[in-house]
Protein backbone atom coordinates (compact mmCIF):
# COMPACT_ATOMS: atom_id res chain seq x y z
CA UNK A 1 0.00 0.00 0.00
CA UNK A 2 1.57 3.27 -1.11
CA UNK A 3 -0.87 5.50 0.77
CA UNK A 4 -2.15 9.01 0.27
CA UNK A 5 -2.29 12.31 2.15
CA UNK A 6 -5.95 11.67 3.00
CA UNK A 7 -5.17 8.23 4.40
CA UNK A 8 -2.23 9.43 6.50
CA UNK A 9 -3.99 12.49 7.87
CA UNK A 10 -7.14 10.39 8.50
CA UNK A 11 -5.10 7.84 10.46
CA UNK A 12 -3.41 10.61 12.43
CA UNK A 13 -6.71 12.25 13.30
CA UNK A 14 -7.98 8.81 14.35
CA UNK A 15 -4.97 8.49 16.67
CA UNK A 16 -5.62 11.99 18.04
CA UNK A 17 -9.22 11.04 18.87
CA UNK A 18 -8.08 7.87 20.67
CA UNK A 19 -5.41 9.82 22.58
CA UNK A 20 -8.01 12.42 23.61
CA UNK A 21 -10.34 9.67 24.87
CA UNK A 22 -7.43 8.02 26.74
CA UNK A 23 -6.45 11.39 28.24
CA UNK A 24 -9.99 12.00 29.48
CA UNK A 25 -10.17 8.51 31.03
CA UNK A 26 -6.77 8.91 32.72
CA UNK A 27 -7.50 12.45 33.96
CA UNK A 28 -10.98 11.60 35.29
CA UNK A 29 -9.64 8.39 36.85
CA UNK A 30 -6.77 10.20 38.53
CA UNK A 31 -8.78 13.16 39.79
CA UNK A 32 -11.69 11.05 41.08
CA UNK A 33 -9.53 8.22 42.40
CA UNK A 34 -10.78 5.52 40.04
CA UNK A 35 -7.72 3.30 39.42
CA UNK A 36 -9.62 1.03 37.01
CA UNK A 37 -10.50 3.96 34.76
CA UNK A 38 -6.85 5.08 34.78
CA UNK A 39 -5.73 1.58 33.83
CA UNK A 40 -8.31 1.42 31.02
CA UNK A 41 -7.17 4.85 29.84
CA UNK A 42 -3.61 3.63 29.46
CA UNK A 43 -4.81 0.46 27.73
CA UNK A 44 -6.90 2.62 25.38
CA UNK A 45 -3.80 4.58 24.37
CA UNK A 46 -2.17 1.41 22.97
CA UNK A 47 -4.45 1.05 19.90
CA UNK A 48 -3.94 4.78 19.35
CA UNK A 49 -0.19 4.26 19.42
CA UNK A 50 -0.51 1.31 17.00
CA UNK A 51 -2.69 3.31 14.60
CA UNK A 52 -0.36 6.30 14.88
CA UNK A 53 2.65 4.02 14.17
CA UNK A 54 0.90 2.61 11.11
CA UNK A 55 0.28 6.17 9.89
CA UNK A 56 3.97 6.99 10.28
CA UNK A 57 5.03 3.83 8.43
CA UNK A 58 2.68 4.62 5.51
CA UNK A 59 4.03 8.18 5.44
CA UNK A 60 7.61 6.84 5.49
CA UNK A 61 6.81 4.66 2.46
CA UNK A 62 5.15 7.57 0.68
CA UNK A 63 7.97 10.05 1.12
CA UNK A 64 10.79 7.50 0.93
CA UNK A 65 12.61 8.60 4.08
CA UNK A 66 12.26 8.57 7.85
CA UNK A 67 10.18 11.13 9.75
CA UNK A 68 12.88 13.74 10.23
CA UNK A 69 12.50 16.56 7.73
CA UNK A 70 9.01 17.95 7.48
CA UNK A 71 7.45 19.67 10.51
CA UNK A 72 4.45 17.33 10.46
CA UNK A 73 6.53 14.16 10.46
CA UNK A 74 8.98 15.49 13.09
CA UNK A 75 6.18 16.44 15.51
CA UNK A 76 4.20 13.29 14.83
CA UNK A 77 7.19 10.97 15.36
CA UNK A 78 8.20 12.92 18.50
CA UNK A 79 4.71 12.28 19.89
CA UNK A 80 4.90 8.60 18.98
CA UNK A 81 8.33 8.08 20.58
CA UNK A 82 7.19 10.06 23.64
CA UNK A 83 4.17 7.88 24.19
CA UNK A 84 6.02 4.63 23.51
CA UNK A 85 8.90 5.60 25.83
CA UNK A 86 6.41 6.67 28.50
CA UNK A 87 4.47 3.39 28.34
CA UNK A 88 7.71 1.39 28.44
CA UNK A 89 9.08 3.46 31.34
CA UNK A 90 5.92 2.79 33.37
CA UNK A 91 6.82 -0.92 33.48
CA UNK A 92 9.87 -0.53 35.76
CA UNK A 93 8.61 2.76 37.28
CA UNK A 94 4.83 2.37 37.93
CA UNK A 95 4.72 5.73 39.76
CA UNK A 96 5.39 7.31 36.41
CA UNK A 97 1.75 6.77 35.47
CA UNK A 98 0.94 9.93 37.39
CA UNK A 99 2.60 11.93 34.58
CA UNK A 100 0.06 10.48 32.11
CA UNK A 101 -2.03 13.63 32.51
CA UNK A 102 0.86 15.61 31.04
CA UNK A 103 2.31 13.07 28.57
CA UNK A 104 -0.94 11.99 26.90
CA UNK A 105 -2.15 15.55 26.15
CA UNK A 106 1.36 16.49 24.98
CA UNK A 107 1.27 13.56 22.54
CA UNK A 108 -2.04 14.49 20.96
CA UNK A 109 -1.20 18.20 20.91
CA UNK A 110 2.06 17.42 19.06
CA UNK A 111 0.24 15.27 16.50
CA UNK A 112 -2.50 17.87 16.03
CA UNK A 113 0.09 20.65 15.69
CA UNK A 114 1.87 18.56 13.06
CA UNK A 115 -1.39 18.11 11.15
CA UNK A 116 -2.07 21.86 11.30
CA UNK A 117 1.40 22.45 9.83
CA UNK A 118 0.14 21.01 6.50
CA UNK A 119 2.07 17.80 5.81
CA UNK A 120 4.43 18.13 2.88
CA UNK A 121 6.49 15.54 1.04
CA UNK A 122 9.99 16.93 1.49
CA UNK A 123 12.94 15.64 -0.46
CA UNK A 124 16.02 14.37 1.30
CA UNK A 125 19.34 16.22 0.87
CA UNK A 126 22.17 13.91 -0.22
CA UNK A 127 23.93 14.26 3.14
CA UNK A 128 20.87 12.91 4.96
CA UNK A 129 21.58 9.29 4.04
CA UNK A 130 23.34 7.59 6.88
CA UNK A 131 22.45 5.11 9.58
CA UNK A 132 24.14 7.52 12.01
CA UNK A 133 21.60 10.16 11.10
CA UNK A 134 18.79 7.76 12.02
CA UNK A 135 20.49 6.96 15.36
CA UNK A 136 21.18 10.68 15.94
CA UNK A 137 17.49 11.47 15.55
CA UNK A 138 16.17 8.49 17.52
CA UNK A 139 18.36 9.35 20.53
CA UNK A 140 17.24 12.99 20.47
CA UNK A 141 13.62 11.85 20.39
CA UNK A 142 14.20 9.55 23.38
CA UNK A 143 15.98 12.41 25.20
CA UNK A 144 13.03 14.71 24.41
CA UNK A 145 10.64 12.11 25.85
CA UNK A 146 12.64 11.77 29.09
CA UNK A 147 12.84 15.58 29.36
CA UNK A 148 9.05 15.94 29.02
CA UNK A 149 8.54 13.37 31.80
CA UNK A 150 11.08 15.21 34.00
CA UNK A 151 9.33 18.49 33.18
CA UNK A 152 5.99 16.97 34.24
CA UNK A 153 7.49 16.02 37.61
CA UNK A 154 9.04 19.49 38.02
CA UNK A 155 5.62 21.03 37.35
CA UNK A 156 4.00 18.63 39.81
CA UNK A 157 6.56 19.63 42.41
CA UNK A 158 5.88 23.34 41.96
CA UNK A 159 2.11 22.82 42.01
CA UNK A 160 1.99 20.39 44.94
CA UNK A 161 4.28 22.69 46.92
CA UNK A 162 1.67 25.42 46.45
CA UNK A 163 -1.11 23.21 47.72
CA UNK A 164 -2.44 22.25 44.29
CA UNK A 165 -3.15 18.79 42.81
CA UNK A 166 -4.50 17.51 46.12
CA UNK A 167 -6.73 15.10 44.23
CA UNK A 168 -3.65 13.42 42.79
CA UNK A 169 -2.04 12.79 46.16
CA UNK A 170 -2.90 9.08 46.01
CA UNK A 171 -1.03 8.43 42.80
CA UNK A 172 1.81 10.94 43.08
CA UNK A 173 4.92 10.13 45.11
CA UNK A 174 5.52 12.38 48.13
CA UNK A 175 7.26 15.73 47.51
CA UNK A 176 10.85 14.41 47.85
CA UNK A 177 9.81 11.49 45.62
CA UNK A 178 8.47 13.82 42.91
CA UNK A 179 11.71 15.80 43.12
CA UNK A 180 13.86 12.72 42.72
CA UNK A 181 11.81 11.42 39.76
CA UNK A 182 12.39 14.74 38.05
CA UNK A 183 16.14 14.48 38.77
CA UNK A 184 16.25 10.89 37.51
CA UNK A 185 14.52 11.59 34.20
CA UNK A 186 16.55 14.75 33.67
CA UNK A 187 19.60 12.46 33.93
CA UNK A 188 18.13 10.09 31.32
CA UNK A 189 17.46 13.05 29.05
CA UNK A 190 20.99 14.38 29.53
CA UNK A 191 22.54 10.99 28.74
CA UNK A 192 20.46 10.34 25.63
CA UNK A 193 21.05 13.93 24.48
CA UNK A 194 24.80 13.24 24.72
CA UNK A 195 24.45 9.99 22.78
CA UNK A 196 22.42 11.88 20.16
CA UNK A 197 25.19 14.49 19.83
CA UNK A 198 27.83 11.76 19.53
CA UNK A 199 25.84 9.98 16.80
CA UNK A 200 25.42 13.35 15.07
CA UNK A 201 29.16 13.96 15.17
CA UNK A 202 29.82 10.56 13.63
CA UNK A 203 27.24 11.30 10.94
CA UNK A 204 28.87 14.67 10.22
CA UNK A 205 32.30 13.06 10.00
CA UNK A 206 30.98 10.40 7.62
CA UNK A 207 29.27 12.97 5.43
CA UNK A 208 31.52 16.04 5.49
CA UNK A 209 34.81 14.84 6.95
CA UNK A 210 34.38 17.10 9.96
CA UNK A 211 32.72 16.21 13.24
CA UNK A 212 31.75 19.63 14.53
CA UNK A 213 31.28 22.96 12.80
CA UNK A 214 29.45 25.19 15.28
CA UNK A 215 26.31 25.74 13.28
CA UNK A 216 23.44 27.25 15.32
CA UNK A 217 21.68 23.93 15.96
CA UNK A 218 24.88 22.25 17.13
CA UNK A 219 25.85 25.20 19.30
CA UNK A 220 22.44 25.44 20.95
CA UNK A 221 22.33 21.71 21.41
CA UNK A 222 25.69 21.87 23.19
CA UNK A 223 24.55 24.83 25.31
CA UNK A 224 21.35 22.99 26.29
CA UNK A 225 23.31 19.87 27.16
CA UNK A 226 25.77 21.93 29.22
CA UNK A 227 22.91 23.61 31.13
CA UNK A 228 21.44 20.15 31.83
CA UNK A 229 24.92 19.18 33.03
CA UNK A 230 24.97 22.21 35.35
CA UNK A 231 21.51 21.24 36.66
CA UNK A 232 22.67 17.69 37.40
CA UNK A 233 25.95 18.91 38.84
CA UNK A 234 24.20 21.35 41.18
CA UNK A 235 21.87 18.59 42.33
CA UNK A 236 24.61 16.01 42.79
CA UNK A 237 27.36 18.07 44.36
CA UNK A 238 25.67 21.20 45.71
CA UNK A 239 22.54 19.51 47.09
CA UNK A 240 20.17 21.57 44.97
CA UNK A 241 16.68 20.16 45.27
CA UNK A 242 13.04 21.09 45.55
CA UNK A 243 11.79 24.47 44.42
CA UNK A 244 14.96 25.98 42.93
CA UNK A 245 15.94 22.73 41.18
CA UNK A 246 12.42 22.57 39.68
CA UNK A 247 12.63 26.14 38.42
CA UNK A 248 16.07 25.47 36.94
CA UNK A 249 14.63 22.46 35.16
CA UNK A 250 11.86 24.63 33.71
CA UNK A 251 14.65 26.80 32.21
CA UNK A 252 16.33 23.64 30.86
CA UNK A 253 13.03 22.60 29.30
CA UNK A 254 12.59 25.97 27.59
CA UNK A 255 16.14 25.71 26.25
CA UNK A 256 15.29 22.25 24.92
CA UNK A 257 12.33 23.68 23.00
CA UNK A 258 14.54 26.44 21.56
CA UNK A 259 17.23 23.92 20.59
CA UNK A 260 14.93 21.41 18.96
CA UNK A 261 12.30 23.59 17.35
CA UNK A 262 13.60 27.14 16.93
CA UNK A 263 17.27 26.96 15.95
CA UNK A 264 16.65 24.66 12.95
CA UNK A 265 14.80 27.62 11.41
CA UNK A 266 18.06 29.59 11.11
CA UNK A 267 19.11 29.67 7.49
CA UNK A 268 22.83 29.23 8.06
CA UNK A 269 22.54 25.86 9.76
CA UNK A 270 23.59 22.62 8.11
CA UNK A 271 20.45 21.41 9.84
CA UNK A 272 18.54 24.02 7.84
CA UNK A 273 16.56 21.41 5.92
CA UNK A 274 15.06 20.02 9.12
CA UNK A 275 11.82 21.46 10.45
CA UNK A 276 11.63 24.25 7.89
Amino acid sequence: MKGSFALVTGIHWGAVVIYVVATIMVAVGQFFDKPNLVRRGFIASVPGLTLHGAGLIIWWRMVGHGPYIDRFEVLSSNAWVLLLAFLLFTIPFPRLKSTGIVVLPTAFILVALGLFCSPEMKTLPPTFRSVWLVLHIIFYKIAFSAIIIAFAFSLFYLLVRRGRLKRLSNILPDLPGIDIYSYRFAGFGFTFWAIGMLAGSIWAYQSWGTFWNWDPVQTWSLVTWAVFGIYLHLRRFFSWQGERASWLFVVCFLLTLVSLFLTPLFETSIHAEYFK
Binding site: G187, F188, T191, A194, I195, L198, S201, I202, Y205, F211
Partner: peptide, 21 residues
Protein backbone atom coordinates in the same frame (compact mmCIF):
# COMPACT_ATOMS: atom_id res chain seq x y z
CA UNK B 1 42.30 8.46 15.48
CA UNK B 2 38.75 9.68 14.80
CA UNK B 3 37.20 6.23 15.22
CA UNK B 4 39.10 5.88 18.51
CA UNK B 5 37.83 9.25 19.77
CA UNK B 6 34.25 8.22 18.99
CA UNK B 7 34.80 4.84 20.68
CA UNK B 8 36.15 6.66 23.73
CA UNK B 9 33.05 8.85 23.90
CA UNK B 10 30.82 5.80 23.46
CA UNK B 11 32.60 4.15 26.42
CA UNK B 12 32.20 7.31 28.51
CA UNK B 13 28.48 7.26 27.77
CA UNK B 14 28.29 3.52 28.53
CA UNK B 15 29.95 4.32 31.88
CA UNK B 16 27.47 7.13 32.58
CA UNK B 17 24.55 4.93 31.54
CA UNK B 18 25.63 2.02 33.71
CA UNK B 19 26.31 4.12 36.79
CA UNK B 20 23.30 6.45 36.39
CA UNK B 21 20.66 4.17 34.88
Amino acid sequence: GIAGIFTGFALILAGVLSSFC
